[in-house]
Design a protein around this nucleic acid. Structure first.
Length: 567
RNA sequence: GAGCCGGUAGCUCAGUCGGCAGAGCAACGGACUUUUAAUCCGUGGGUCGCGGGUUCGAUUCCCGCCCGGCUCACCA
């Protein structure tokens, strides 16, 4: 804590002004901004002005372009321009940090508009509307008898302007004495635009709503230290626009998924996180203890077996959007708790699900990022359906020249192949694991645009129904995007006898050293004995979907509070 | 779990081949009534991740530990 701020808080406490109970807000900051800022729709424009300031940013140079009458707008360009230079730039109009900006601007010779003319069209005159706004004071520029600052929350940022004539000498003095950047401030006043054209509240009165006892992160570089960003995510959200964008996007994705499923007649349900048997996936569970029941429980590794019980119960379309917990390694694509969507549809098979997945994902992608094409790691991902479909063993055959029989029958040959591919610890891997590893090595990375890989070997899929045309396969697909598995789905196995056999097979795998082999769930088999209709089910990794749409390469960037060791 | 890299002011980062610890922003004092990475003048600020060792002297060299990142292994 900073002593100067503590002293100011002490003064506020003495005056009974330290932590007010409420403040009447007329609008969100974002709401007021969008009211007077028209969407630009990425229009191509030519603008002429003189360069007032050049700042180096990640994307190149950020230029403040000023017109004859002092109205300003921004341009992002790779051109190195000198301050004071007259220039004409052409680029796509957008907003950068809330201001009109020509993106990817290049010099041009065409007929050009002035910043005044552009702003007149897109930045409307607020006409001295009276507003009452609140937010965190993130910048402050004192000019003696007047001062400027910006209030910010997750919805946006708005400039405030206090002048002695309007707010009064006493009030201005107490602002200078008591308010720091980082404080939460409420202001009342009227909206206008400054000479430079920025939407601004001319403040009549202000209220300090909460004091920040710590100084804010640096305004230009923000917080870069990932440890601070993850442990104190609030600082990341305050300081870094990109962090705010990612988590707003995540929220939109979740909302959009629900919207789509609800509209398709699905029922959202919640099944136990604490389970007696952690089954439904191949993974090591977390163990916990219930004092009253006097027994160990597991945190679920998947909701699958409970959701299928609900289908037995007559809920024909169910989904659950929630956390799964797996007691395994942590890295850029794995967090011990992660968010999965699982959904089940009675009377469908996996081919119905492929078509449905295309509709679901294209809806989510369009409604969250506004386009079916989205770049990931500098390469475009095209989400436009239909997605290509490949057979599992056809892909393997393409890569190795070897047929299905080789992979399913020639265990030693397969082991040798895996060894040649550099798969570690091949001697200890089970047959199923070997096939899985070889597929991963040879095929997965190349599957960039969304595509379905279908018809997996049965030994990899203990809950999937045997393929109607081939008893060695199951009716299962995985959806791959950008080289990673995004969804996993199958026609559900609903024969209780066969299900029991498959669980036994898993127990054998476990004895042969596969720690993650699936656990037997007798109660689930009992449910199947009552009759589960033909059903198709699917799981989609929400964190990974968000990673793709947000164009980030670590799962920690899309989880607000990722798992870290205690500091 | 293994290998490599990192931890210096509130933040972003320099730096010390072992000799009083540096900048910008933030803070503090002053000037400035349309600024916007405001500007100008001045001031203060450090357990150099933690613990040991070597040394006259360690933030720097050595050893151990903690935390993080990347790669690999396990997994989605």
């Amino acid at each position: 804590m900073e002593s100067a701020r503590q002293e100011k808080l002490q003064k506020l406490k003495e005056q009974g002004l330290a932590y007010p109970y409420r403040f009447r807000v007329s609008h969100d900051i974002g709401e007021i901004k969008s009211r007077y800022e028209k969407p630009t729709e990425g229009r191509e424009l030519c603008v002429r002005g003189s360069v007032k300031k050049v700042s180096r940013v990640e994307e190149g140079y950020l230029i403040r372009l000023v017109g004859d009458r002092g109205v300003e707008m921004l341009a992002l360009t790779s051109e190195e321009l000198r301050v004071g230079a007259e220039c004409t730039l052409k680029g796509k109009l957008d907003r950068y940090e809330g201001k009109l900006c020509l993106m990817d601007a290049l010099p041009c010779q065409e007929e050009a508009l002035s910043p005044e003319e552009v702003k007149k069209e897109y930045d409307l005159d607020p006409g001295f509307e009276e507003v009452s706004l609140a937010g965190r004071l993130v910048t402050l520029r004192s000019m003696g008898k007047a001062l400027f600052g910006h209030l910010q929350d997750a919805t946006g940022k708005v400039q405030i302007y206090l002048r002695k004539d309007t707010v009064g000498e006493e009030a201005l003095k107490s602002f200078e004495e008591l308010v720091d950047t980082g404080d939460i401030l409420g202001v009342e006043g009227r909206l206008f635009r400054t000479n430079a054209g920025e939407l601004t509240v001319e403040v009549k009165s202000f209220t300090l709503l909460a004091k920040s006892l710590h100084p804010m992160p640096e305004k230009w570089h923000g917080v870069k230290d990932v440890e601070v960003r993850y442990r104190q995510r609030y600082l990341d959200l305050i300081a870094n626009e990109t962090a705010r964008k990612v988590f707003l996007l995540r929220s939109k994705v979740v909302q959009s998924v629900r919207e789509f499923l609800n509209a398709e007649g699905f029922l959202e349900v919640e099944t136990p996180v604490l389970q007696h048997v952690a089954s439904g996936a191949n993974a090591k569970p977390f163990v916990t203890y219930h004092n009253y029941l006097e027994q160990n429980l597991f945190l679920r590794i998947a909701p699958e077996l409970y959701l299928k019980r609900l289908v037995v119960g007559g809920f024909n379309r169910v989904y659950e959007l929630g956390k799964n917990f797996r007691n395994e390694g942590v890295d850029t694509t794995h967090n011990p708790e992660f968010t999965m969507l699982e959904f089940y549809v009675a009377y469908w098979d996996y081919t119905d699900l492929m078509e449905f997945t295309e509709r679901l994902l294209s809806h989510v992608v369009v409604s969250t990022v506004g386009s079916l094409k989205r770049s990931y790691k500098g390469r475009e991902v095209d989400w436009t359906p239909p997605y290509r479909r490949y057979h599992y063993f056809e892909l393997l055959q393409e890569k190795t020249g070897k047929e299905k029989e080789f992979f399913l029958k020639d265990l030693e040959g397969l082991r040798a192949l895996a060894r040649d591919l550099g798969v570690p610890k091949v001697e200890t891997l089970t047959h199923a694991k070997l096939i899985d590893k070889v597929f991963e090595r040879l095929v997965e990375e190349e599957l960039w645009d969304p595509c379905f890989v279908t018809d997996f070997p049965k030994m990899l899929s203990p809950l999937a129904k045997t393929h109607r045309k081939d008893p060695e396969l199951v009716e299962r697909f995985e959806l791959f995007v950008a080289g990673r598995e995004l969804a996993n789905a199958y026609t559900e196995l609903n024969d209780p006898f066969e299900q029991r056999e498959r669980f036994f097979q898993q127990l054998k795998e476990k004895e042969m050293g596969d720690e993650e082999a699936m656990q037997m769930d007798e109660d689930f088999i009992t449910a199947l004995e009552y009759g589960m209709p033909p059903t198709a089910g699917e799981g989609i990794g929400i964190d990974r979907l968000v990673m793709l749409l947000a164009d980030v390469d670590s799962i920690r960037e899309v989880i607000l509070f990722p798992a870290l060791r205690r500091s």
